[in-house]
Amino acid sequence: MSLVVSAWLLFNWLIGSPPKASPKPLDITTQLELAKLAFATVAGLGALVALVTAYRKQRIDEVAQILARQVARDTNHDATERRITDLFGQSVEQLGHEQAPVRLGGLYSLERLAQDNPDHRDTVVSVICAYLRMPFLAQRAPGVARQGVTYPLELLDTLDRPGQQELQVRLTAQGILTKHVFRSTHSNSNYWPGIHLDLSGAELIHFSLSECKVRIANFEGARFIGGAGFRKAEFTQIATFIGASFQGMANFKEANFTHSANFDGAIFQGATDFTKSTFGSMVTFSGTSFDNDVNFTEAKFSGSAIFTSAKFTAATHFNQASLRECTFYGSEFSGFAVFDSARFHAEPDFDGASASHPNDDHSWPGRWRTDPTAATGLAPLVSWE
């Protein structure tokens, strides 16, 4: 304000002030109007000050309410996390209890925790998988507890009472996992998407992932006692069965391996069914043993299919299968192999492979045949022009 007055005075000095006339007294009416104007100005300023004050108070109240809500949310979140941590710790402690009913309670508590708190589902699934990875039958049959060796199904009938109770706990743990990855439950809250199952080295009894959908499944070195069901299962990323052993029937009918699958070194003792299964970028069966009938009828291999040094002991069916790039280098077909109406996008590789001879039940693709000059037994496969 002082700067404005100083500028005004300087301006008047430079241009010269006009001669001052004798002031004319104001009449009563003018004085009243000036007074009204002054009062109105003062009132307006007062109202403006009151408005600014009310606005600032409102803003302060709003900020205080926001902070209060944030503090309440943080407090509730901290309290919830503490409750979850306490429940998780108690549930895990129950899993280590010597009494089977207490272990069952721990499993159901973990399931409820994961159901109500999606952010903790991966952790809960990891804990349940870790429980299943702990030795079970290996402790009761140490003579056959080597990797790649399956246990006779009859061993389950010889379990003592604690063993039978533990069997029920493990079946419950398996059931909890499969319940929440079952594809038909996508429309309700029971489905847990994006699950990663790590059951490497686990002993799985009558295990089934039929019609289930998982992101990653690791069954490396797992032992499937009894049947193993993977009918219409969907693996959206990686499925690993390296060194797994299947004591009973393995049902992979219409299974979908979206990306890669690895069965290297797996042992299939029972009948194996891959009918109408689909394989993505790569599937490998190197060194895999099929000790019973295996069926790949109408299976679709979109990428590389590698059967290097695989062993097919009984009937092998690739009828109407679709294979893009495949190799059976060094494979053995002790039973008979049928490739009727199989479609190959590239010439299959049977170099170094051998098959039972003589055997009129074979039906080889393209120019491949067993060497007719070979002695009885396993004869090399040769390509005839």
Rank of each mutant, 00 (worst) to 15 (best):
N292H: 11
N251H: 14
G221S: 09
D273Y: 05
F301R: 00
A255Y: 11
A233G: 14
S281E: 15
S260T: 12
G243W: 01
S281W: 12
A250V: 15
E298I: 04
M249N: 13
T240Y: 10
G280M: 05
G226L: 11
V283E: 03
T288P: 04
T275Q: 14
I216W: 01
G229T: 04
T258Q: 15
A233N: 05
N262L: 07
A244G: 05
T288W: 05
M249E: 12
G229A: 11
N218D: 12
M282H: 14
I225T: 14
S286D: 08
G229E: 07
Q269C: 09
G303V: 00
S245I: 12
K276T: 14
M249C: 10
I267Y: 09
F263R: 01
F257T: 02
N292Q: 09
N256Y: 13
T284P: 02
A222H: 09
A250I: 11
G303E: 06
I267V: 15
E220C: 10
A239G: 06
D291N: 15
S281R: 14
A261Q: 06
F268E: 01
S277D: 03
F279A: 04
A261E: 08
G229L: 10
F246C: 09
S245Q: 13
M282A: 14
E234K: 04
S245H: 08
F263D: 01
A244M: 09
F257V: 04
I216Y: 04
S286M: 10
I238E: 06
F296D: 01
F263G: 00
T288N: 05
G287T: 08
I225Y: 12
Q237P: 02
Q247K: 12
G248M: 10
T297R: 08
Q269I: 13
T288C: 06
N256A: 09
I238R: 07
R223Q: 15
G229S: 07
M249R: 14
A266E: 00
G248S: 08
F252H: 01
A271E: 14
S245F: 08
E254P: 04
S286E: 12
E254H: 10
I242P: 03
M282N: 13
S289A: 15
G303H: 07
